[in-house]
Design a protein around this nucleic acid. Structure first.
Lengths: 178, 178
DNA sequence: AGGTGACATGTAAGAGCAGACATGTCAATC
DNA sequence: GATTGACATGTCTGCTCTTACATGTCACCT
């Protein structure tokens, strides 16, 4: 379901596109929040067309189909945002490792925690670079309006920073033990 | 894969148990980090037994099987913790909503954000109650040792708090717009 | 003319997962 | 003695997602 929604959002925000274009947009924008490869996107678009949420606007050479969002699609997106409680599965491999790490000995636990820390650092740098790039290409003086994806990017940066602080504190606590 | 690991962790931390017991342990401890219903757990245990990661220690009345972790299982758990990079899929419905919310109008965006805020508040209360309950049943004066699940619980509380702060700021920012 | 690599669109097999269905035991209540 | 509800173990169907396979075009280089 959520894949559908993400695709509708991209079509709505950036306009009509082909499956290939959407796969690229996916990587460049939603990727930090939801993932999907082209092998998922193509069939999903076909199903969405069958459900009239999108239409094939044009068919180019070699089967390239340009999809655009329909009013029904827009309604579906709106309904999901307004009506769907994000009780979604909180499945995090990192959190699972955090859970299990006390089963290891001191030294080994430190290895795992330090790796998490580094992982967080890399991701934070990545996200902040992304934000810097976005800012550079934006309208110079603040035009009140919140831009598509900005809120999610901010959330991602804060979450990553929190994870980093947590890892630091966990490392410190374990190191304190003789 | 991760389900296997979580089950091995529970067996290792709390000792032998049946599928039913493990399902309960799951709900009570790992649930904030990974989820699985009994319909996933039973078949997985059977497969793990086939792979010799666990053994059937005893068979009680009406097919109740008590599983215990084997040395191979322990090795598998250790190897996963030490060797597995948690690059895991970051799929969050909440973050997806955060991404898409700027597509809505001001008022509707506020509705969605306020619901997220409330959701975060409930979850935070829940996690903090859980921590309080754990503390109450713990050894009175700090015995250095980090207890199973404590690190993950702390991470969860911090992450939830961060999400809450983010929602507050996002709401404030949107309200500031005329 | 032939080769290479980026572009572009798909299908197929299999794991992971959720929700519903099915079955049977046991203890306590009516 | 019959019913109810908590305990307990499983299967099945259908959806999602990942990985790998398969195919064909186009532009550029040699």
């Amino acid at each position: 379901m959520s894949l559908r929604i993400a695709l509708l959002g991209l079509l709505q925000a950036y306009g009509s596109a082909s499956g290939y274009d959407l796969a690229k947009r996916f990587e460049r924008s939603v990727a930090h929040v939801w993932q999907a490869g082209h092998s998922q996107i193509y069939p999903e678009l076909a199903k969405m067309a069958a459900d009239a949420l999108v239409t094939v606007e044009a068919e180019g050479v070699r089967g390239r189909k340009t999809y655009s969002i329909t009013p029904e699609g827009h309604a579906e997106l709106r309904a999901w945002l307004l009506g769907h409680d994000p009780t979604g599965p909180a499945r995090s491999e990192m959190a699972l490792q955090a859970f299990l790490v006390p089963l290891l000995g001191r030294e080994e636990a430190l290895v795992v925690l330090r790796r998490m820390r580094e992982h967080g650092e890399r991701k934070l740098a990545e996200l902040e670079a992304l934000r810097a790039a976005k800012h550079a290409s934006s309208v110079p003086t603040g035009t009140g309006r919140v831009r598509f994806g900005d809120l999610a990017l901010d959330l991602g940066i804060r979450q990553t920073r929190t994870a980093l602080e947590w890892a630091d504190d966990a490392i410190a606590e374990i190191e304190r033990q003789t």
